[in-house]
Design a protein around this nucleic acid. Structure first.
Lengths: 206, 206
DNA sequence: GTCTATAATTAGATAGAC
DNA sequence: GTCTATCTAATTATAGAC
């Protein structure tokens, strides 16, 4: 029962507990929002998946809207961290090898985090306040960093190349349940991931 | 006021009026379901976009679920009609030309009907009863017809090639509002459509 | 910091007037 | 065939106990 006495410092502080709970809620929010969209996701289901109750969500995040922003920050932050990490380890490879390997890593990320693409499609569909926030706060920064990754296609083809890369490298994993039933292929298998990464990389950087 | 007297046949019969209303509702349903997902779309909003009231929806379609199936039938049917039409006009071109032109036509269709891809991603994300219905009723038939279109890649690469094509050829148009704000490109312009169609076709059939 | 209870809105489905 | 009114259940946000 009593794991802590009054005079000993607690094993986890209140600040730690706070962060832990917020973390669990945001993680569940990323899943729900990307699966069901903003309207379709209910704060009760999010609370349930996080193992707590609906009241706590409005305590930690003022509103459903603010929770959605926290979820967006999280999934985009994970992508950026992954890209940075891969960039420093690539060092001075030649440009084409760098570009191919960055594409492969992008595909691998999508395999592990299908929520990113689900989230982006979910929000990009209608010209509402959340789409504008997502573009202005995160996507513009990502989009303008593309040349630094060694991925070419500046000029008028850039938007086309961008959405070809995003689409070709993400959809397979974002509709994984459908893919399993439709084709028999399990997109989460290591073999499928590497095959897809290689296919997309070779198509875009021949 | 009275455009019809009692003894003259009405300008539009009741059966015609029925079909017209059903058509308007299904059209609005395709938009709403693809934009907001099944849960996120409300039958009241669908009725509003169709210029009628919520009660009529349960009269013409028994439930929200049945309305969703009617919407799926419609958008998939439009794709199939378009493919069939293009196939007969292609006649005896050589295989590579045929394949490239079928891909171009698929991209053009997505430009005019971004709802198809939105609908597919919306449903493919979770392993629920609607995803299984969509795969079994429509997608399997489409997927198995691919070889007949001159698009190769049978064998273990087929699922990968399929989702590369779908993703590369659809995302740009499905997130058109986002694309405009992010890149300045308007994906609905004739120039953007043909540029994208050509890019995807040349990437997949070099 | 966490949870339960509740207020105000909105959802899908039904019933009945015209 | 169409529309309004209403029922039940679910939604977000809030208030207060612990």
């Amino acid at each position: 029962m009593a794991c802590q006495t009054n005079n000993l410092p607690p094993v986890t502080t209140r600040a730690e507990q706070r962060e832990e709970t917020r973390e669990r809620i945001v993680e569940a929010a990323v899943e729900c929002f990307s699966e069901r969209g903003f309207r379709g996701a209910s704060t009760r289901e999010i609370a349930g998946r996080a193992g707590t109750n609906q009241g706590l969500i409005t305590y930690h995040f003022r509103s459903k809207d603010d929770l959605w922003k926290a979820a967006a920050d999280r999934i985009v932050g994970q992508l950026e961290a992954r890209i940075r990490e891969r960039l420093v380890r690539l060092g001075g490879e030649d440009p084409r090898t760098r570009a191919r390997e960055m594409i492969r890593e992008f595909v691998r990320f999508n395999a592990g985090h299908p929520e990113l693409f689900r989230f982006m499609v979910e929000q990009g569909k209608s010209d509402d306040i959340r789409m504008r926030w997502l573009v202005d706060t995160h996507l513009k920064r990502l989009y303008e960093a593309i040349p630094q990754l060694g991925l070419g296609a500046e000029g008028p083809l850039k938007p086309h190349a961008f959405y070809v890369l995003v689409g070709a490298g993400s959809v397979l994993f974002s509709v994984a349940p459908e893919c399993r039933r439709l084709t028999g292929l399990d997109p989460s298998s290591q073999d499928a991931i590497e095959t897809h990464a290689d296919l997309v990389a070779r198509l875009l950087v021949p």
